[in-house]
Computed example of a mutant assay.
Amino acid sequence: MGPITSTLPVRLSRRLLWTGLERKAADPVPFLPAVTGCTVLERYPDGLLREIVVRGEQRQRERVTFAPPDRMDFAQLTEPLWQTISNIIGDGPGGTTLTLSLQLSPAGEEKARLEPQYLAAMRDFVESTLVAVVETLHRTSTEQAGRAR
């Protein structure tokens, strides 16, 4: 099974989009409604290790790898059904795009085969998460530009 993906246009330059994704990696709380906390545990030349809190109770560790200028991967270290979430900056007919891609783990793929509603829920998750991220990127980039003046 291939990754579950969704793509949206983004009204930001690639540079601003990348800067926003770096902010999201270090502090996803403003970008992802289900994430209620985040601690950066380690920083590396190519990314970071973080622990996020989902809905105030579930803790998940992720190794975030930066691949500038167009890709950021979130390897799921404690979520048994997911393998990697990727944020990919691209070009579409109308300009810059952001793609969110979720690769399920072998256990997640098996669950998706056995439970079609799980696959549907993951597609909904990817689409709604991307919408929330893009809306927050637009809002926060505009706010930062206003403060810089």
Rank of each mutant, 00 (worst) to 15 (best):
E135V: 10
S105A: 11
E62P: 01
A132Y: 00
L32K: 08
V134T: 06
V126A: 08
F125V: 07
S141I: 14
M72R: 03
V126I: 03
G56R: 05
I88C: 06
Q58N: 05
L16F: 04
L102K: 02
L104F: 14
E42S: 06
E115N: 08
T78A: 13
K111W: 03
L17H: 00
P106W: 15
S13C: 05
R61I: 05
L119Y: 12
V64H: 01
T129C: 08
E135W: 10
I89R: 02
F66C: 02
S128T: 14
L81H: 13
A107D: 12
Y44G: 05
S128R: 15
L100W: 07
Q60V: 05
I89W: 02
T96I: 15
E62H: 04
E42R: 15
S86Q: 12
L130H: 03
E57A: 09
S101K: 12
L17Q: 00
L48Q: 13
L81W: 10
S128C: 13
R61C: 08
L32W: 07
D91C: 03
V126K: 03
L81G: 01
T136L: 01
E135L: 11
S86W: 03
A112S: 06
L100Y: 07
L49R: 12
A107I: 09
F66D: 06
R61S: 01
P106M: 11
A34F: 02
G90K: 09
L100E: 05
P28H: 15
D46Q: 03
P116S: 10
L77H: 06
L98W: 01
E110Q: 14
F66L: 10
T78Y: 12
T96L: 06
L98D: 08
T39W: 11
E62R: 13
T129E: 00
K24F: 01
G95Q: 10
R14S: 09
P116E: 07
W18L: 05
S13R: 07
G37M: 10
V126F: 02
T140Q: 10
A26I: 09
Q103L: 10
W18I: 04
E57F: 09
A107H: 14
S13L: 04
D91Q: 14
V35T: 04
E79P: 00
T36R: 07
L16K: 07
R11T: 04
T129Q: 02
R113Y: 09
D27W: 08
L32C: 09
P33W: 04
G95S: 12
L32P: 00
V64Y: 03
R43D: 14
N87M: 13
L41T: 01
R15Y: 11
D46L: 08
Q58K: 02
G56E: 02
M122K: 10
D27P: 00
A121H: 13
C38W: 04
Q76N: 13
C38E: 13
C38T: 00
P28W: 14
T84M: 06
R50H: 00
G108K: 02
T97P: 03
M122L: 05
A112T: 00
D73F: 04
R59A: 11
I89N: 02
E135H: 10
G94H: 15
G94M: 12
E22D: 04
V131H: 11
V40I: 13
T99W: 03
L100P: 00
D91E: 15
V29R: 06
T99Y: 08
G47F: 11
L100T: 07
P30G: 05
I85Q: 06
M72I: 15
R123N: 11
E110T: 09
L16H: 10
P30K: 01
